[in-house]
Each structure stands twice: as structure tokens, then as C-alpha cells.
Nucleic acid binder design. Structure first.
Length: 602
RNA sequence: GCCGACAUAGCUCAGUUGGCUAGAGCAGCUGAUUUGUAAUCAGCAGGCCCGGGGUUCAAAUCCUCGUGUCGGCACCA
């Protein structure tokens, strides 16, 4: 095994640096451990830079870090580089790697470095951000790069890598700056791991909800309709309706009342709420007889108007309103992505109006609700508390108090969370729920937001025990986040093979011959009675063909019926995954379906 | 919004350096076949080649402006 670096006090130190400083420590070998890949991928980024520099000599380089999905390097060159050039760069990298240049390190002063890279305005930009007096230079062959390391001892160790994508990226991640070219890549210690990684990417592509949504006829988009406006097709409509009705029951059980606010409200209301000032650029406005209206980007103002419809006593709190609220937001064109980012979507939105003393229990109740739903779908998840953003309403004290209240609720119940500084909504801090899907990807869906600001801005109140007027606290929350995004995630999570309780169609009925169609219809009606959707495959095709067609729709259960079944009042069940078949009496079959549908309750 | 790529039948894709009537598979329709667990056979029909403008004797192909999509960046359920 090749030693490539050492670990000392939790820091990875490359051999060049260890030798220079006389350090010793635990050896890191070239394998697929986190530490080893960190070094390997960093050096692969440098090798890529070396190859790019040799192919495009006027290239200037910014930074080339290791990231979760591999590594990248940002650079700028006069040549136009496209996807087709990645192969060429890979080839050049391999030819350099074959030369087995050692990677050498030396240290120079910042002034010397500035002189050395005086023609590279991007490297100068990098140096502006380094406070140190001395900087290190890594050299391989005749390529030199300013870098803090750590690196492999020799580029010959780099063999199993792949450049995956090319894209634009703003210098320093700031959209006010110029745009650079970024190439992403991945590297592993052995061939098999690289292959496995590429297969994982292919698997993810197979699960893409845009592809499956099209194949399974769940939803579509049309150029003439407009970007970001999804069209729900019948199969998607059925899936969505199942989700909606399960969730409706779950809300009622927990004391939520269904309400509905208007799709657009007068602009002066949005000024009162602060949306006009803080969220206006994401809103759509229109005029009705000279009065300006804003199409709602959120449902809170509507629910506030519901709250204001009557006087409330402390005895009534908490009051919980929920709505499958359709919202419109002006997302930037480049942000649109299938069902994950759209311009019109439906939130499973609710607002809880409660006393300050009820905050904690209400938050815990919502967290439990979230847990119930996420575990039903077999999602792991984690929670993240987001604090005050730059653009915000309300005083620092209010923000401090509400942020602390969220933390307290979590801490007291020993719930783990991470902090996202500045990630809150403009009216309050929030707990975001990040779920991890079947192949390990993270998604942001649900959110719990604590709000002292809107109750203040709308002068909301309830009568306290002393008949005094007290301002309630508002909790905004969504569990799925939006039906659009959540269904997109579910589609990828299950690779289109939805479990019975949520599938667009529960059963495919395949009559052997046309004489069995009548019984198929009888069975289908019985299924509707137990709230199961079925589809009869009675087209003029061979039995094999119809079974194949049914299989391809990913329906969870296929039943075949012929003379035998009709005579015995049974069905021949076919499990689409295992291709196994077994017979059930009609009654048992219906009970089975009913159980599978009803076993899920949020 | 920014950088780059792309847009041909309902879907997946061919279409040569600009040149004859733009092709295939699947899906659809018609007919034959009536099938016992992953593609029966034959025939038919499907296209303003994303939209506008231009170059050219000639444009699906080249240029240009839109629209939409994809990969990222930035922004967010």
C-alpha cells in the first residue's frame, strides 16, 4: 500500500509538508477512505489544471477544491470549451500521469507569489483572500500552482478518474462577479469504485422524476403554457389525490381546520405584511380597476384574515388553519427544474396561532407529525435551524427570542439539529426538514417557522384570562413543503415503483380472453368500492403483450383472470417485482388490497 | 438572471460538406388472430423540422432575435 500523507491532530498533512516540518503521524494510504480521497481528488484537480494549461496556454486559474461529489476547478480561458472537450482534457491528464511527475512543494513570500502570478488575475484574486505572509507552491513537471495542499507525492498515483460536467460559475460564488468556467470531476483509488460511482449516477438518471413523470404519464410541461407551470395528467392526478386525502385526515385528527384564502390580495395588505418590500421581486402583480393586487406567494396573509374574522379567547388557542395553498413565485429561469422548482405550486400549508407558552409543545407536535410522515415513506431526515437573513422585518430582540425558542424546543426534547446562519424567512427563524432519499440524496421539503412579526404588523390579538388583549404567536409550517416537489422526490425515491397506498393505479386487471372482460369490470367496480383504482388491459393484443404493458406501468399488482378464476371466484395475482404468481380467492384478494391501502395513516 | 449545450411525429431517436418526396422503432388507427403470465401478423395514418426575421438559386442544416429544455452558478418549497 502506498503511503500518501499522514494525519496529525486530526489534520491531513502531505508527505512534502511532513518532511519539511519533520512531522510524524498516522499514515494515510491510497485507498477510498475519506482522508485518502480528499488528497487524491485535490491532486486530480491539479492534474486537470495542468492538462488545461497545456491545451489552453492562456488559461488563468481560480480555485480547485474537493467537494462532496468530487472536485472541480474554476478557470478562465479565451478558448471556447464545451462538453466535447472533456475527453481531450482527460486524455491529456492521463498522459501527464504516465510521466509520473513528483509533486514538489516550496514556500515563498506573498510578495514573491504576487510577482510570480502577476499575469494571472484570478490567482491574484485568490491571494487577496489569504492573510498569511508566506504561501506554498506545488510543482509537477513544469506546472506550478499556488495551493495550501495537501497533495499526493506523485501524479502517477492518479489513475481512476472521470471529468463529469462543465459549467459556468461566478468568481467567489457572487453573482456580481465575472463568470468563470468550472469543470467537475471525480476520482477513486481503484477502478471498481469509479465504475460503481458511474453506475450510481446512471441509476440516479434512471430515477429522474422528469423522465419517469413522462413515461408514467404523471405530469408534463409545455412550451406554449409557460416555463415552470406543471400540467398534471390523470395518473399524476390520482397519485396526488391519494396523498391529499391521507394528509387531510391527518390534519383533522390533529385539530387543524381547513380554510381557503383568495388567490390574490390587494397590494396594501402585502405592504402591511412586508412581503411587498421583502419579497416583491418574486411576486406577480396585476391591476383590477386601478387597484393593484398581488398574487399570493405564501398563504399566511389569507390565514391571518381568517383569524381576524372573529374574536378569540385564550381558551381557544392554539388555533390551527390548514390549506392546500396554491402559490405563485417568480423563480429565475435558470432555477426551474422539473417539479422541484416551479412557478406555481401547492403547499400543504398551515398556520398555528398560539400563546407564547404553547410554542414549545406546538413545535414538538409538528415535529412528531413530520416524523410520522417521513417514516411512512422510509425517508431519513435531519433538521436545521435557520437564523435571521439580511432582508428581514422585526427587531433584533424579537429575532433573538424566537430563534432561542426554537432551539429550546429542540434541546428540551433532545432533538438534534444543525444551524444555517442567515437562512431564515424574512418574518422569522425556521426549522427546515431535510430528507435523505433511497440513494442518499438530500432534499429540503418541510419547514416550521416561528413568527412574532406578522402578528405584530397585523395587530392580532386574543383575550387573556384578565380580559386583556394579548398578541398571539404564529407558527407557519408545511410538512411535504409542496405537492410538486414532494411527488418529484417520491418518484425518484421509489424509482417510480410507488407502494400500494399511493400508487396512481393499485391493480392492473388482465383478462385472458375477451370473454372475461365482463368479470374484469365487476372486479374493477368492487375495487373502486374499497377505494382502489384499477385498469383493465383488454386491448386486442396477446396476453403476453398485455402483461408486459401492465408491468411497464409499474403498477404494484397485476391480476390475471380467465375461465378458471371466474369459475372458482379467484384471481391469479402476479407480483411485478418478483414475477411470482399465486392464487387468491376474490374475497382474500380484496381484503389484501384493502389492508395494504389502509395500513397507512399519517 | 449568468456561462455552456440542445430543440426533427404523442414518445425515443436517424437525417452526410446547405441540394430530389424528411426516415425508423414504440405508441395510435383498421383488419386478421382469442391467446394462461414480459413484445402475434398485415396494412394505414402521424411532421409549419420550436417561433419570428435574415443569408442563399436552394435552409431541418448557416446567421440573428425570441421561447422552451438540459448541465452548472447564483437564488429558494
Amino acid at each position: 500500500m502506498n503511503e500518501i500523507a499522514i494525519k496529525r491532530d486530526g489534520q491531513i498533512i502531505d508527505l512534502q509538508t511532513a518532511k519539511e516540518l519533520g512531522f510524524e503521524g498516522e499514515q494515510i494510504h491510497l485507498d477510498n477512505s475519506e482522508d485518502s480521497l480528499e488528497v487524491l481528488r485535490h491532486s486530480t484537480a491539479h492534474l486537470m489544471a495542468q492538462a488545461i494549461k497545456s491545451l489552453y496556454p492562456d488559461t488563468e486559474f481560480y480555485v480547485g477544491p474537493v467537494v462532496k461529489e468530487g472536485f472541480y476547478y474554476d478557470f478562465k480561458t479565451s478558448a471556447e470549451i464545451g462538453e466535447g472537450d472533456l475527453k481531450k482534457i482527460e486524455k491529456q491528464m492521463l498522459s501527464f500521469a504516465k510521466k509520473k511527475y513528483p509533486i514538489e512543494k516550496y514556500t515563498i513570500t506573498m510578495d514573491e507569489a504576487k510577482e510570480k502570478f502577476k499575469d494571472d488575475h484570478l490567482k491574484l484574486e485568490v491571494m487577496k483572500r489569504i492573510p498569511d505572509e508566506n504561501v506554498s507552491i506545488y510543482k509537477q513537471g513544469d506546472f506550478e500552482d499556488l495551493c495550501r495542499g495537501p497533495h499526493l507525492p506523485n501524479i502517477g498515483l492518479i489513475r481512476y478518474f472521470k471529468l463529469t460536467k462543465i459549467a459556468g460559475a461566478y468568481l467567489g460564488g457572487d453573482s456580481k462577479n465575472e463568470m468563470l468556467t468550472r469543470i467537475y470531476g471525480i476520482a477513486f483509488a481503484d477502478k471498481e469504485s469509479l465504475k460503481a460511482h458511474m453506475e450510481m449516477l446512471a441509476e440516479a438518471a434512471k430515477r429522474d422524476h422528469r423522465k419517469l413523470g413522462n413515461e408514467m404519464k404523471l405530469f408534463t410541461f409545455r412550451e406554449e403554457v409557460g416555463a415552470g407551470f406543471p400540467i398534471w395528467l390523470p395518473a399524476g392526478g390520482r397519485l396526488r389525490a391519494r396523498l391529499e386525502s391521507l394528509l387531510f385526515k391527518a390534519h383533522r385528527k390533529r385539530g387543524y381546520e381547513p380554510v381557503r384564502g383568495p388567490e390574490m390580495l390587494r397590494s396594501d395588505l402585502w405592504m402591511t405584511s412586508g412581503h411587498y418590500q421583502n419579497y416583491g421581486e418574486n411576486m406577480y402583480f396585476t391591476k383590477i380597476d386601478e387597484l393593484e393586487f398581488g398574487v399570493k406567494p405564501m398563504n399566511c396573509v389569507g390565514h391571518i384574515k381568517v383569524y381576524e374574522d372573529e374574536l378569540h379567547s385564550y381558551r381557544d388557542l392554539p388555533i390551527k388553519y390548514f390549506e392546500y395553498g396554491v402559490v405563485h413565485r417568480h423563480e429565475m429561469t435558470g432555477a426551474l427544474h422539473g417539479l422541484f422548482r416551479v412557478r406555481e405550486f401547492t403547499q400543504d400549508d398551515a398556520h398555528i396561532f398560539c400563546t407564547a407558552g404553547q410554542i414549545e409543545e406546538q413545535i414538538i407536535e409538528v415535529v412528531d407529525f413530520v416524523d410520522k410522515i417521513m417514516s411512512t415513506f422510509e425517508f431519513d431526515y435531519k433538521m436545521m435551524i435557520s437564523t435571521r437573513p439580511d432582508k428581514a422585518v422585526g427587531s433584533d430582540e424579537v429575532w433573538e427570542v424566537s430563534t432561542q425558542a426554537l432551539k429550546n424546543a429542540m434541546d428540551k426534547n433532545s432533538l438534534a439539529y444543525e444551524i444555517d446562519e442567515g437562512g431564515g424567512a424574512f418574518y422569522g427563524p425556521k426549522i427546515d426538514i431535510k430528507i435523505t432519499d433511497a440513494i442518499g440524496r438530500e432534499w429540503q421539503c418541510g419547514t416550521i417557522q416561528l413568527d412574532f412579526n406578522l402578528p405584530e404588523r397585523f395587530k392580532l390579538e386574543y383575550n387573556g384570562e384578565e380580559n386583556d388583549k394579548i398578541q398571539p404567536v404564529m407558527i407557519h409550517r408545511a410538512i411535504l413543503g409542496s405537492f410538486e416537489r414532494f411527488i418529484g422526490i417520491l418518484t425518484e425515491h421509489y424509482a417510480g415503483e410507488f407502494p400500494m397506498f399511493i400508487a396512481p393505479t393499485q391493480v392492473a386487471i388482465v383478462p385472458v380472453a375477451s370473454s372475461h372482460k365482463e368479470y374484469a369490470k365487476v372486479l374493477s367496480d368492487k375495487l373502486i368500492d374499497i377505494n382502489a383504482d384499477s385498469e383493465i388491459y383488454a386491448k386486442n393484443d396477446s396476453l403476453n403483450k398485455r402483461i408486459r404493458t401492465a408491468e411497464k406501468t409499474r403498477v404494484p399488482m397485476i391480476v390475471v383472470i380467465g375461465d378458471e378464476e371466474i369459475q372458482n371466484k379467484t384471481v391469479a395475482v402476479r407480483d411485478r417485482r418478483t414475477r411470482e404468481q399465486y392464487n387468491l380467492s376474490e374475497d382474500d384478494f380484496l381484503k389484501l388490497i384493502q389492508t395494504k391501502i389502509n395500513e397507512v395513516n399519517f
